[in-house]
Amino acid sequence: MTELHELRLQTVIEQVLMAQAKTVLDLGCGQGQLISELAKIDSIEKIVGVDISATELAIARDNLNAEGLWFEKDIELIHQSFDRVNANLIGFDAAIMLETVEHIEPRYLSRIEHAIFSVYQPRLVIMTTPNVGYNPMYGLQPGETRHPEHKFEWTRLQFKKWCEGVAVRCNYRVELSSIGEEHLLLGSSTQMASFRFLGSGRPSIV
């Protein structure tokens, strides 16, 4: 695990703790690293990981079993795409998309927005994603992405515009921040958005 990834995990977990979240969705849970860390926190009662890869979920299950965490917490793993609304995911305190959104085809972003922000409406949504402006620090050329499975990578301005649009449309307040060493001109490697729901009550599935 890289130092930057550890810093992302730590930063996200701090946000979850500050929000006093007891139930957490890990959207794009991969091999379960974040779930493993969340499961060690006494105040968190339920964790659901969602991923489109059955292979990654199988590894996550094995990792959780190996750590003895599977039977200590209410943990569930769900194999599905983010753009498919699932009634079982409504009512969580927090949802996390840790380096996940960039793996989604841009044409599906409106479906993701609808499912997470309009239907599930967690009190807190945390999203981290690469800052493409920082890519030259990794020796990448224009048009190159950090990972072959990334469908896109946002500039800081593009990320800000999308997040603010989601916040307005879905009744959230959003705060933008950065993770990692800050370059004077290029910013940091990772950008983060913390969305906090401004409404009350829970929606019906539409």
Rank of each mutant, 00 (worst) to 15 (best):
A39W: 04
Q15P: 02
Y134D: 03
R156D: 10
R146L: 11
Q141I: 06
G32A: 07
M137H: 05
I90K: 14
Q191W: 14
I52D: 02
C163Q: 04
R8N: 08
Y120M: 13
A167E: 10
L4G: 06
P136D: 03
E102A: 04
H147G: 02
D83K: 08
H114Q: 06
I52N: 05
S110N: 05
E105I: 01
E181S: 06
L184N: 03
R202E: 15
C163E: 04
E153G: 13
T145H: 09
Y134N: 02
V206W: 00
D62A: 09
E6P: 04
V166Q: 02
S118N: 11
V16W: 02
M18L: 13
P142Y: 11
Y172D: 14
T55L: 11
V48E: 00
V101L: 13
V48R: 07
G30I: 03
P203F: 12
M18I: 12
S189A: 13
I41M: 01
H5M: 13
H147C: 03
L38N: 00
I90E: 09
D51V: 04
V166I: 14
F71W: 08
L9G: 02
R146Q: 12
E3K: 07
Y172H: 07
E14L: 13
D42N: 07
F197M: 15
I41P: 03
N131C: 08
C29K: 10
L124P: 08
P136T: 04
T145F: 12
N63M: 07
S204T: 14
R111L: 04
A54T: 14
M137F: 05
M1G: 10
I44M: 02
V101N: 01
N65S: 14
E72S: 10
G199Y: 14
L27M: 13
T100C: 07
I179V: 08
L186S: 03
I44G: 01
M137C: 08
V206T: 06
T2Q: 12
W154K: 06
Y108A: 05
R8D: 13
I96V: 15
I205S: 04
G180K: 10
T128C: 13
R169A: 00
I116R: 00
E144C: 02
G30F: 02
G68L: 09
P203Q: 14
L124G: 01
R8F: 05
K73C: 01
T55E: 15
K22Q: 14
H5E: 15
N65I: 02
D74N: 15
I179S: 01
E144D: 08
L176F: 06
I41C: 03
N86L: 12
R111W: 00
E105P: 01
M97E: 01
Q191H: 11
H150F: 00
V174A: 00
E45Y: 06
T23E: 09
G187M: 09
T100W: 01
S43A: 11
Q10Y: 10
V132L: 12
N131K: 03
I205K: 09
I75H: 10
S200P: 11
V85P: 03
N135I: 12
D51A: 06
C170S: 14
K161V: 10
I116H: 01
V166Y: 09
M97Q: 01
T55H: 15
G143I: 02
L17H: 01
Q33S: 12
Q121D: 05
R8Q: 14
I112H: 06
E182P: 00
V16S: 00
